[in-house]
């Protein structure tokens, strides 16, 4: 299977603190890949490096065999940050129109794309509402919609379901699976174990290292445990 993302020996430090140390990572085309790790383990830093917002001190990152960072690549990446990057004063539709225009979608394309993504996140009825009046879950869904506007090949989601109720979380995951079936590659960070379970493959991040990377089943099997949580702890012990 072809690789979508290749990370080689990536390292970055902020001041004296080494946040990522020697990261190697391969994400295949068309899979849902999870980055699992406690908060502060460097998940967000790693995905920002992959999108090209941050640049590491060492190592290289390639997406579709092109070197990151590249403005050209950013056209085919959809990024949903941990915080809802929305303009509170604007309506849902106006927020999406803005993002669509930034990605250079034509006027007719824009209208169609907005309809499509709003249907995906089930916000069609609220498109003329000002974002300020949205609930936390609705904002999260709108952020997701905004990162899907330009039909990216690679979707990067940083803790997409934080603060979202279980029902909505289910529906988001079923959407992600649909997108995957349409050929999208999805990289998702999480610190929730049952969510990590839903990924095709998983990398466990701890203290700036990847301590394990495999399918959720294999990870559990290797450590002879029943849950990912136990597997994570077991891998962590080995690391020491």
């Amino acid at each position: 299977m072809a690789s979508m993302i290749i990370v080689r020996k990536a390292a970055i430090s902020f001041g004296k603190e080494k946040v990522l140390k020697n990261i190697d990572l391969d994400v295949n085309e068309g899979e849902i890949f999870g980055l699992l790790g406690p908060s502060g383990s460097g998940k967000t830093t790693l995905v920002k490096m992959i999108t090209g917002i941050l640049e590491g001190d060492q190592g290289e990152i390639f997406i579709k065999d092109q070197k990151v960072p590249s403005l050209e690549l950013m056209k085919s990446i959809g990024y949903m940050a941990q915080s809802d990057a929305l303009y509170q004063e604007l309506t849902a539709k106006e927020n999406l129109e803005f993002i669509a225009a930034i990605y250079g979608l034509k006027r007719q394309e824009r209208k169609k794309a907005i309809q499509e993504v709003l249907e995906i996140v089930d916000l069609t009825d609220h498109m003329d509402k000002v974002v300020k009046d949205f609930s936390g879950g609705m904002k999260r869904r709108l952020s997701l919609a905004a990162s899907l506007m330009h039909k990216p090949d690679l979707l990067i989601l940083d803790e997409p379901t934080v603060g979202i109720d279980p029902v909505l979380r289910q529906s988001i995951w079923s959407e992600l699976r649909k997108l995957k079936n349409n050929g999208m590659t999805i990289l998702v960070t999480t610190h929730v174990m049952d969510e990590a379970e839903k990924c095709d493959r998983l990398a466990m991040l701890r203290n700036g290292y990847i301590i394990a990377c495999d399918t959720p089943e294999k990870l559990k099997e290797n450590q002879k445990v029943d849950s990912l949580e136990e597997a994570f702890l077991a891998y962590g012990r080995n690391e020491k």
Partner: peptide, 11 residues
């Protein structure tokens, strides 16, 4: 509000 980061993830 994080929109600059979002903007900077676009081309």
């Amino acid at each position: 509000q994080g929109t600059l980061e979002k903007l900077l993830s676009t081309p």
